[in-house]
């Protein structure tokens, strides 16, 4: 297991918390809570060792827009591919923005 902490500039805190995914094979769990004003943080716990560069590249892209709401993300990963990572984070962001998809 490896852990990784990242942070990014952001806008105002997100409106509400949100949850997406499960810690199952090829999937991950995203816990999203409103972040401190102007700053998003991402804490990653992953079952796969040696892929911190890939994680950093994927998450850097997602948080490239500094105008996004500030969030504090906790990610518990069980071997999700970058595509699944993007989808799950997007799902949590959407829920936090108010568009409740009903899915977890």
């Amino acid at each position: 297991m490896q852990t990784l902490s990242l942070d990014y500039p952001a806008g105002a805190p997100a409106a509400r918390r949100a949850l997406a995914g499960v810690v199952g094979s090829g999937d991950l769990e995203v816990l999203l809570e409103p972040g401190a004003d102007g700053r998003s943080t991402v804490e990653i716990n992953t079952s796969v060792d040696g892929v911190n560069e890939i994680w950093t590249a994927v998450v850097d892209r997602i948080f490239a827009d500094a105008a996004q709401p500030a969030v504090a993300l906790e990610i518990n990963d069980f071997g999700a591919t970058p595509a699944v990572v993007r989808l799950r984070i997007a799902q949590a962001m959407e829920q936090a923005a108010g568009a409740d998809t009903g899915a977890h």
Binding site: M1, V22, V23, E29, L31, N45, T46, S47, E74, N76, D77, F78
Partner: peptide
């Protein structure tokens, strides 16, 4: 082993 926040 990676944990889940609600312990499943």
């Amino acid at each position: 082993i990676v944990t889940q926040a609600d312990d499943g």
